[in-house]
Simulated assay, not measured.
Amino acid sequence: MLLFAVSAGVPAMLVLGAVTGWSHSVMGAPTWASWMIAVLAIFIGLPLAWASTPLGTRGATNLLLKAYRREGLEYVEQQYLSKLAPYKAGLQLFNLALALDHAGDQDDALVVYRHAAAYGSPPAMVNLAYWLSRHGEEDEAQEWYRRAAEAGYTRVVPRAGER
């Protein structure tokens, strides 16, 4: 919410400053420069504000889902996630795995959960562990639960034999 407020508020403030002459008088910027700054803020800030909303987040996940179904996981990692820090790439993969899981594609979701967990996403580690536990692979499930706890996952993580 804070990202949305800043991303939408700064361009609005700069446009208002250019319209009223505030940026010209206070910042000492010529009128044309204050308008250029306002336009740049709009082109950068408003897409960032949109991306921070739930609809924008779903749009990014849908983009990854379409690319995954069309080209595969390797393509998604190269084209979209290689530019992100590993932790953020893991979160994007986690969202993709959730989308696949909700679509009923559990086999592909498991593969993507594994990749997201390898990138260091604690929620992906927990979901992977839960899936493994449900399919009788308790030892590996406990290992992923332990890794999630070490990575800072704060929710309750079941112990061996608990579900």
Score class of each variant (00 low, 15 high):
Glu71Trp: 14
Leu16Thr: 06
Thr57Trp: 00
Gly120His: 08
His102Ile: 00
Thr53Val: 06
Gly59Glu: 08
Ser34His: 07
Tyr130Cys: 11
Tyr87Val: 15
Ser34Phe: 11
Leu91Thr: 00
Ala124Pro: 06
Ala148Glu: 01
Thr20Tyr: 05
Ala67Gly: 02
Trp22Ala: 08
Ala60Ser: 10
Asn95Glu: 11
Ala103Val: 15
Lys83Ala: 14
Ser82Cys: 05
Leu98Met: 10
Arg69Trp: 13
His135Trp: 10
Lys88Glu: 10
Thr57Glu: 05
Glu162Cys: 00
Arg134Lys: 15
Leu132His: 10
Ala89Phe: 00
Asp105His: 08
Phe4Met: 08
Val19Trp: 04
Glu140Gln: 12
Ala160Lys: 15
Gly120Thr: 15
Ile44Phe: 09
Gly152Gln: 04
Pro122Trp: 12
Met125Trp: 01
His102Asn: 14
Ala33Pro: 07
Arg69Ile: 15
Leu40Val: 15
Ala99Met: 04
Asn95Asp: 07
Glu138Tyr: 10
Phe94Lys: 09
Thr57Leu: 03
Ser82Met: 08
Asn127Cys: 05
Pro47Arg: 03
Gly45Thr: 07
Ile44Gly: 03
Leu91Tyr: 02
Phe4Gln: 03
Thr57His: 06
Ile42Leu: 10
Leu55Tyr: 08
Gln106Val: 06
Pro11Gly: 04
Leu91Arg: 07
Arg70Gln: 09
Ala49Arg: 02
Gly17Leu: 02
Ala67Pro: 01
Gly136Arg: 01
Arg134Met: 13
Leu3Asp: 05
Tyr75Arg: 14
Gly152Met: 01
Ala109Lys: 00
Glu138His: 13
Glu140Trp: 13
Val76Met: 02
Ala41Thr: 15
Lys88Ile: 14
Glu137Asn: 15
Val26Tyr: 04
Ala8Lys: 04
Ser25Phe: 04
Lys88Ser: 12
Ser133Trp: 08
Val112Arg: 02
His135Arg: 14
Leu93Val: 06
Ala18Ser: 11
Arg155Leu: 14
Trp22Gly: 05
Leu2Met: 08
Ala118Gln: 12
Trp22Glu: 03
Met36Val: 12
Lys88Pro: 07
Gln79Tyr: 11
Glu77Leu: 12
Asp105Trp: 02
